[in-house]
């Protein structure tokens, strides 16, 4: 029906917006009923909407309900859980959930530290290496490019488990290499509670181990983004700057950096959320240890479900994580957009 309407209208295309992001008006005239105007777009969405409603939005709503109950293992067989109000939330914020080494504020603080340090290294390394690869003379540029995205191509799960074994005290590649170089080779990377940097006492050695892994994993993404942007910068800008006597340091800050910004800002926001929720690296390498000191929110949320089986508590925990992410995203959005405009 709509097909006919559109086809038989005198010039369906004439009134259409010609901008690139424009819509195509589905049908013509103003006089049409609401149904005739909109049934097609809704029909296109219908299958997805039904499935999403059933497997995504309903579970989310159910999750909210669960977070106000004491749902646990014994309720799985059909016994209804008790409504406990905001008890779960209170317990979470009061560090009163009966799990060893649990401290909400420590976990949150660590999670933020983890995110900021990671994203910092991702961006710095990504941009620096993109600049290196963008030099006039690079022998084997294609090969470097292809191999450099390797960490990105590998499944994070495998990467994490492999690195965990590399950090093994007796047989891992890291200690074996250190030994081969004549350096101390009996380092308990993942178990030691010592803090290598004294004034950052809350960061055990394991933090630097997982940081190393996640930096290894994350910089290629930033490099690809930065490479794309670098190549779209017209070279006359640099020529002009050179004529004005700007050295390369200033060329970078006056030309390259401002032009990279609009591309890097969304990548940074995206990368931050990704890192904030980096389950694989933490869970498989340290498992949150030693003594929960490398636990992040998502690994803690997972442990509440499996093996603990505190479903109600876990539901509340996930909802809290969601709101924290929301706040971070909004704040970051505001701050980084401001930077972009400046």
């Amino acid at each position: 029906m709509a097909t006919e309407t559109a086809g038989s209208a005198p010039h369906p295309a004439t009134g259409l917006p010609s901008d690139r992001s424009g819509a195509i008006e589905q049908t013509g005239g103003q006089g049409q009923s609401w149904f005739a105007r909109y049934w097609l777009p809704y029909l296109y969405i219908l299958p997805a909407a039904l499935i999403l409603g059933l497997v995504t939005f309903y579970p989310i709503a159910y999750q909210v309900w669960m977070s106000f109950t004491d749902y646990s293992r014994r309720n799985l067989r059909g016994r209804a859980p008790d409504f406990v109000g905001i008890d779960n939330y209170v317990k979470i914020f009061n560090n009163d959930i009966g799990i060893a080494n649990y401290n909400f504020y420590r976990i949150l603080g660590f999670n933020l530290t983890w995110t900021v340090t990671n994203v910092f290294f991702h961006v710095v390394l990504g941009v620096a290496i993109a600049l290196l690869l963008n030099r006039q003379l690079v022998i084997g540029r294609r090969i470097f490019r292809a191999i450099f995205i390797f960490p990105w191509a590998m499944p994070p799960l495998v990467v994490a488990i492999v690195w965990r074994n590399m950090f093994n005290r007796e047989f891992g590649a890291i200690n074996l290499s250190l030994g081969a170089l004549g350096l101390p080779n009996d380092i308990r990377w993942l178990e030691s509670t010592d803090a290598p940097i004294p004034f950052l006492g809350f960061l055990p050695l394991a933090f630097y181990a997982v940081l190393l892994v996640n930096v290894w994993l994350g910089w290629p993404f930033m490099m690809v983004i930065a490479s794309g942007a670098l190549q779209s910068i017209p070279s006359d800008l640099y020529e002009a700057a050179k004529l004005d006597g700007a050295n390369r340091w200033w060329q970078f800050w006056d030309i390259t950096a401002p032009l990279l910004k609009p591309v890097m800002v969304p990548a940074i926001m995206y990368g931050s959320i990704l890192t904030f929720n980096q389950f694989n690296v933490i869970f498989f390498i340290t498992g949150g240890g030693p003594f929960g000191r490398t636990e992040i929110l998502v690994t803690q949320a997972f442990e509440l479900v499996n093996p603990q089986g505190f479903y109600g508590l876990a539901a509340a925990f996930s909802i809290i994580v969601f709101f924290i992410l929301l706040i971070i995203t909004l704040a970051q959005n505001k701050y980084l957009r401001g930077l972009e405009a400046a």
Partner: peptide
């Protein structure tokens, strides 16, 4: 907007409810 919001949920966010619902 709903899509963006849903994307922001971490992987384990609806683990609990999906587990319970599918279990029933």
């Amino acid at each position: 907007f709903a899509f963006i919001a849903v994307q922001m949920l971490p992987g384990v966010a609806t683990l609990t409810s999906l587990f319970v619902l599918l279990n029933s």
